[in-house]
Amino acid sequence: MTFENILIEKNNQIAIISINRPTKLNALNKPTIEELHQGFEQLEADKEIRAIIITGSGEKAFVAGADIKEFSSFNQSEGAHLAAKGQELLFDYVQNLSKPVIAAINGFALGGGLELAMASHFRIASANAKMGLPEVTLGLIPGYGGTQRLPQLIGKGRAMELIMTADMINAEQALSFGLVNHVVEQSELLDFAKKTAEKIAKNSPTAISKAIKAINANFKDGINGFHEEIKNFGECFETEDFVEGTTAFLEKRKPDFKGE
């Protein structure tokens, strides 16, 4: 499939999705959200791919927000539909993907951009990155999960402050808050993300998928995360990866996981 707004590169079991609207600072519009959904869907089905990196084209922005022109004339029901559809197609979809998604934040990650990074399983930022949720300056609130995921990652008080002030924070502040896992120079960002993804790719894909389910369960209403962990732990024993992993350990060799 040919995309207009994203690029996908595959190499050594790793896929890189680049949002490719540099003249718009990679802002998210409806076609881009749809293409991202399709791209992630393809990679989810690709048995060769074991980890995904999401980043922005150019050196200025990961995603500098949503395309405001698209919704500036919306009414209440249209606005609610926009948020619901976006969460379904992209943000919730990414969070619940069975393959790990690493956000490589290479510049501005604002509004929907930060929400996309937060929906990813973890984040690595370049030293020049700036992050924030400026929606209240438009008379809005974050609508793609920002009011939920930001408190989960950095705590309620800090999230309240960042959302209400609309302040941007730099990469080092994001690191100290626990919003990102690592900060590296921009020239090193993709290499660092790839090395991290390669470490993940060496491990059991089936176990990683079940770990994602168990970890996510802790943040879902009405779900007992401990029970979900027990269930997924038990299911691991029925996989070929479990047999290979334990056999390799006993034979003192590196495992060759097939993701089955």
Score class of each variant (00 low, 15 high):
8 I>P: 09
98 S>K: 14
14 I>H: 02
7 L>G: 09
190 L>D: 05
32 T>N: 11
67 D>H: 07
255 P>T: 09
68 I>L: 15
51 A>D: 01
239 T>E: 06
9 E>F: 12
88 E>K: 15
254 K>W: 09
97 L>G: 10
13 Q>R: 12
181 N>M: 15
44 E>T: 10
167 D>E: 15
167 D>M: 13
122 F>E: 06
161 E>K: 12
93 Y>I: 03
213 K>S: 12
210 K>R: 15
27 A>H: 02
77 S>Y: 12
46 D>A: 01
238 E>Q: 15
222 G>H: 09
164 M>F: 10
37 H>M: 07
10 K>I: 10
229 E>P: 00
118 M>A: 03
159 A>K: 02
25 L>C: 02
229 E>A: 15
179 L>A: 05
50 R>F: 02
163 I>G: 03
49 I>R: 02
194 K>D: 04
226 F>Q: 14
246 T>C: 10
46 D>H: 01
250 L>M: 12
88 E>Y: 13
260 E>K: 15
41 E>Q: 15
161 E>L: 08
138 L>E: 10
82 L>Y: 11
210 K>Y: 09
8 I>K: 08
114 L>H: 01
128 N>R: 03
233 F>N: 12
7 L>D: 14
103 A>E: 00
108 F>A: 06
204 S>L: 04
229 E>N: 10
160 M>N: 13
205 P>H: 03
68 I>H: 13
92 D>H: 05
249 F>I: 14
157 G>N: 15
247 T>F: 09
219 F>E: 11
246 T>F: 13
209 S>E: 05
123 R>E: 03
15 A>C: 09
192 F>Y: 13
140 L>Q: 08
230 I>A: 14
